[in-house]
Simulated assay, not measured.
Amino acid sequence: MIFGKKKTGLRKEYDRALVFQIDKAKIDWDTARNSEAALLDGQVNLRLIQAQTALARAKFNYLYREARRRKTVGHMQTHVLKTDRI
């Protein structure tokens, strides 16, 4: 290259960030599902809790599909293996 280093690691860096975001989204989704199950009998707005759970699931599904589209290779944690089919 004439003007500096070739940026070969940029895709790998973004793939690592994507895998990190997927892990975080999965944990958020699991937390939302557990909260929804725990708060079903309480005096809270059930639709709000269900909407938050649906949003967390949609975020996880979007990130997961994006990783599959990009053919990103990452680690597979046990909490990801136990999910329902998407």
Rank of each mutant, 00 (worst) to 15 (best):
D28S: 08
L48G: 05
L55V: 04
N45M: 00
A17S: 10
G4K: 01
K5N: 15
L10V: 10
R47L: 09
N61K: 06
L10H: 15
M1I: 02
G4I: 00
A51V: 01
V19G: 08
K71A: 14
V80E: 12
I27C: 02
I49Y: 01
R68L: 08
K7Q: 11
R57C: 00
A38S: 08
I22V: 14
Q21M: 13
R85W: 11
L18I: 02
H75D: 13
Y62D: 06
N45H: 01
R33G: 02
H75A: 12
E66K: 14
Y62R: 04
K59Y: 05
I49E: 13
A58Q: 02
T8H: 09
D15M: 03
L81C: 05
R33K: 12
A38D: 10
W29C: 04
A51D: 15
E36I: 00
K5S: 15
A25L: 04
A17G: 03
R70G: 03
T8D: 15
T8Q: 07
T78I: 15
R70N: 10
D41N: 10
Q43W: 00
R70H: 05
I49N: 08
K59T: 11
L39H: 04
K26W: 06
A58N: 02
L10C: 06
R70Y: 06
W29M: 14
N45G: 05
Q50W: 03
E36W: 00
R70V: 01
R16K: 14
W29R: 13
L10F: 09
N34W: 02
T78M: 12
E36Q: 09
T8I: 11
R47A: 13
A37H: 11
D15A: 12
K7L: 14
Y64H: 11
E36D: 09
F20W: 06
K5D: 14
